[in-house]
Design a protein around this nucleic acid. Structure first.
Length: 221
DNA sequence: ACCCAGGGTCATA
DNA sequence: TATGACCATGGG
């Protein structure tokens, strides 16, 4: 096992001990994961929950349900999640793909590589949204990278100064960790939790669960 | 009143 | 390639 691998696992262990299992992705069905992945773009999860609850209440949280809604009606239902005009369009495009593939099961049963490319071809689905669907809806061992992940790894000195690209960071995890979907799911959730509940709440990094692994931790910050 | 959220797209240089 | 503007609601 390489140095990096040991370090990544140690970070994971410490975060898990500090915060416990995060239970991501919070959803009843794979389709709900897909909808949530789209709606949460640059949006607080709290607001996404409202939008999803409204879709459920309207009996529209299904591919056919969303396909049957008018653009205006869909916009109205998802309004609390922000960017609602864009997101309504994006949901329509995603649902069209799902139906073209013979349903959620048909789409998600595509080979991982092909599934990723197919998702990326949908307007409004980028790398993070696609990978969230691959991991949390389809169960593929794909590491999801977000802005928090890059910030934390940069601070830990694992990304060597230069501006990090999405795929580089993803590669760092996937080449140094076993391809375990549950591990990836929990790890990504823990990074988000850590960034929100610790790094942002405590700029000085006092009592950071990463301890000496984080240069910014300890007294003085 | 300001800043930010579990991003992605498009226009510009 | 690489910035910047834009999308819009809700909470701290």
């Amino acid at each position: 096992m390489s140095q990096i691998a040991g370090l990544l696992l140690e970070i994971y262990r410490r975060l898990l001990r500090a915060y416990g299992p995060q239970g991501w992705w919070p959803a009843d069905t794979p389709f709900e994961v897909m909808v949530g992945a789209l709606l949460t773009q640059a949006t607080a999860w709290r607001n996404v929950e409202r939008a999803i609850a409204r879709l459920k209440e309207a009996g529209a949280l299904s591919p056919k349900g969303i396909a049957a809604l008018s653009q205006r009606r869909l916009e109205e239902l998802i309004r609390p999640s922000g960017f609602f005009r864009q997101k309504a369009r994006r949901l329509k495009a995603l649902v069209e793909l799902v139906l073209n593939q013979g349903g959620v099961e048909g789409l998600l049963s595509l080979p991982p590589e092909e599934l990723r490319e197919t998702l990326l071809s949908v307007p409004g689905i980028g790398p993070e949204t696609a990978d969230s669907i691959l991991l949390y809806a389809a169960g593929h061992p794909v590491f999801v990278v977000d802005a928090y992940t890059i910030r934390i790894l940069t601070r830990l000195g694992l990304l060597g100064g230069e501006p990090a690209r999405y795929e580089e960071v993803q590669e760092l995890f996937e080449k140094n960790l076993p391809p375990d979907p549950q591990l990836y799911a929990e790890y990504h959730a823990l990074l988000v939790r850590h960034a929100k509940d610790h790094c942002r709440a405590r700029p000085r990094c006092g009592g950071c669960p990463l301890g000496e692994l984080c240069p910014a931790s300890g007294r003085g910050g």
